[in-house]
Computed example of a mutant assay.
Amino acid sequence: MGRWLSARGYTVFVLFYRLPGEGWAAGPDVVLQDTQRAMRLIRHRANDYGVDPERVAAMGFSAGGHACADLAARFAAAVYKPVDKADQLSARPLLAAPIYPVISMSAPHAHPGSREKLVGANADSVLERAHSPHLNIPANAPPHFILHAEDDDVVSVENALLLRAALRERGILVETHLFSHGGHGFGLRKAMGKAVEAWPELFLEWAHAQGL
């Protein structure tokens, strides 16, 4: 997707983020530390990259969709001590595009593997809630583009619906596309020949309308 967007004139950054299971002190917040820091560094170095610091968006797929949605919900959360001047900048994305995202950390809709790796198999309800983006939507959350397939047998489509409902309740602009067929992890290549193949253009049309 990075190459696809780049070919259409976008400057794209691919984030390799740390995981809680690797033993970092921040535990489940380590992913949010990295997504926040990435947004701030891009804005801090905007002149070097030739980008508008106000027009930086976030997109993520599956577990990365959780990272994207969590950033969009908790961009202002203080999850690490400031390192330099970059950390004086906002981590709020212009818009967020969680694609077939993991959202809920609670049964029955949580993806078991993602839940275990992020908050642990024995997480209590407080920890589950803290890391379920749909339960932490602020009034100034960015607009969202949500995409999911109804026949996703890995991450239930209910995750996308929970996020959509929470955004609508807060009055946040959200565009949602649900496709009957597509499964999980279709991205670009596996979407070919299916109706869901249209999703990248749908995203671009919506993103243009939001000023990206």
Score class of each variant (00 low, 15 high):
residue 90 S to T: 06
residue 5 L to M: 03
residue 120 G to W: 12
residue 42 I to A: 04
residue 59 M to D: 05
residue 119 V to E: 02
residue 121 A to V: 12
residue 33 Q to V: 15
residue 149 A to W: 04
residue 187 G to F: 08
residue 148 H to C: 08
residue 48 D to R: 13
residue 16 F to G: 15
residue 56 V to T: 04
residue 192 M to K: 15
residue 117 K to Y: 13
residue 83 V to T: 13
residue 77 A to Y: 11
residue 152 D to M: 07
residue 22 E to S: 07
residue 194 K to D: 00
residue 147 L to Q: 06
residue 189 R to F: 08
residue 20 P to Y: 13
residue 110 A to N: 02
residue 1 M to S: 15
residue 150 E to L: 12
residue 49 Y to R: 14
residue 82 P to H: 03
residue 148 H to Q: 06
residue 22 E to L: 11
residue 28 P to K: 11
residue 68 C to V: 12
residue 212 L to E: 01
residue 90 S to I: 07
residue 41 L to W: 00
residue 84 D to F: 02
residue 141 A to Y: 04
residue 211 G to V: 06
residue 160 A to G: 04
residue 26 A to Y: 08
residue 139 A to C: 07
residue 31 V to P: 01
residue 70 D to R: 15
residue 190 K to A: 12
residue 76 A to Y: 02
residue 93 P to N: 06
residue 159 N to E: 01
residue 22 E to W: 12
residue 8 R to A: 00
residue 133 P to Q: 13
residue 87 D to E: 04
residue 52 D to E: 08
residue 5 L to V: 09
residue 46 A to S: 12
residue 23 G to I: 07
residue 193 G to D: 13
residue 127 L to C: 07
residue 191 A to H: 02
residue 93 P to M: 02
residue 74 R to P: 07
residue 114 S to F: 06
residue 116 E to P: 08
residue 16 F to Q: 15
residue 209 A to R: 15
residue 114 S to H: 02
residue 205 E to K: 15
residue 162 L to Y: 02
residue 129 R to G: 10
residue 40 R to Q: 01
residue 161 L to I: 09
residue 38 A to C: 12
residue 194 K to S: 08
residue 174 V to M: 02
residue 175 E to A: 13
residue 160 A to Y: 04
residue 72 A to W: 08
residue 176 T to Q: 05
residue 1 M to A: 15
residue 49 Y to L: 13
residue 46 A to V: 07
residue 91 A to E: 05
residue 63 A to K: 03
residue 122 N to I: 11
residue 130 A to Q: 14
residue 187 G to S: 14
residue 155 V to R: 01
residue 183 G to F: 02
residue 166 A to G: 03
residue 198 A to D: 10
residue 21 G to L: 06
residue 109 H to M: 13
residue 25 A to N: 11
residue 154 V to R: 09
residue 170 R to K: 14
residue 128 E to Q: 11
residue 35 T to Y: 00
residue 101 P to L: 11
residue 164 R to E: 12
residue 171 G to W: 01
residue 25 A to Y: 15
residue 151 D to E: 05
residue 117 K to F: 12
residue 120 G to V: 06
residue 133 P to L: 00
residue 66 H to D: 02
residue 61 F to Y: 09
residue 26 A to I: 10
residue 134 H to M: 05
residue 50 G to I: 09
residue 91 A to S: 05
residue 71 L to Y: 05
residue 142 P to F: 00
residue 124 D to W: 03
residue 62 S to G: 07
residue 136 N to D: 03
residue 34 D to Y: 01
residue 7 A to E: 13
residue 210 Q to W: 03
residue 63 A to L: 09
residue 142 P to G: 03
residue 91 A to H: 00
residue 198 A to K: 14
residue 20 P to V: 13
residue 147 L to Y: 04
residue 170 R to T: 03
residue 85 K to W: 10
residue 167 L to G: 02
residue 106 S to K: 12
residue 201 E to Q: 15
residue 67 A to Q: 07
residue 147 L to C: 05
residue 7 A to N: 07
residue 92 R to P: 09
residue 97 A to G: 11
residue 143 P to F: 02
